[in-house]
Nucleic acid binder design. Sequence first.
DNA 1: GTGAATGCAAACTCTTTGCATGACT
DNA 2: AGTCATGCAAAGAGTTTGCATTCAC
Lengths: 151, 151
Amino acid sequence: MAATDTSVDWADHALARLASDGYRSSAPRAEIIEVLAGLGCSVSAREITAELQRRGSTTGSASVYRTLELLERLKLVQRVVVSEGLARYEPALPGGDHHHHVVCDRCGKVSAFEDEALEAAINRLSLRLDFAIDAHDVTLRGECPGCRRAD
Amino acid sequence: MAATDTSVDWADHALARLASDGYRSSAPRAEIIEVLAGLGCSVSAREITAELQRRGSTTGSASVYRTLELLERLKLVQRVVVSEGLARYEPALPGGDHHHHVVCDRCGKVSAFEDEALEAAINRLSLRLDFAIDAHDVTLRGECPGCRRAD
DNA sequence: GTGAATGCAAACTCTTTGCATGACT
DNA sequence: AGTCATGCAAAGAGTTTGCATTCAC
């Protein structure tokens, strides 16, 4: 699929932002940004690297990771949690409590919460999607009380 | 922290379920379940393995992974996605669209959706939590239209 | 010319798998 | 006794890091 108008906008925006923030404009960065814009939503570093190789680029995977880290720091890309990855588990009783998690960006502390309105919104939402939804994860991120006080 | 009543209940329940499903009752499994019950919510395989070693157990990490897989299959533990792990990225424009993802359990297809009611619920929820929330991820899982038809 | 950014390769972390040994039923 | 489950160790996937080289400024 060709890049959409929005993705072109984003690529330009990202390149401009890098320049205005004093980062050097290199071919690898431009290529990574272009691929990111073209592939759209929810792309892994691995997929970007593969796409670069397919295009005959000599950009290495280390640069992909470094550039993603930079783009994330500048909030030019958002890191999303889709599934897989570092798995965490918790005991589950049949019909037991249903809760989600808040993770502290600073210290990594994980707390649990429950919210009926949230569940209701997800249930209603599930009805209007084409997918047959059978599970959901919600993760909030921010600063925990301890780290807030330490500011 | 000592095991709570609930976690003891869960450990017993899990052991009973394994037995009733014909799985052998082994020391490693019992230890893993005990650790899982004690550590509570959101534990990684790595943390379980570390705790086992700390306790002087000879249980290897392969058994931890195999037991977690088994427990997940029996729905005795729930796999939760907290963050980290396989990172996926997407272009982000400042003030750009805000959306979440539905992942097909069968084919891995990722689709995006937006839902105002969901966002509203999360915003309201954020206000009553002690954390200073600055981001959130919502991931739904189920079967995509294509895979549903293929049933 | 100088320092930032790159590519390569090695190191690391987490997870999975093969296989011989050991333990539950 | 039979076979399920284990531990070990090796292999695999994804990511990070050190270092010499290259390239943008």
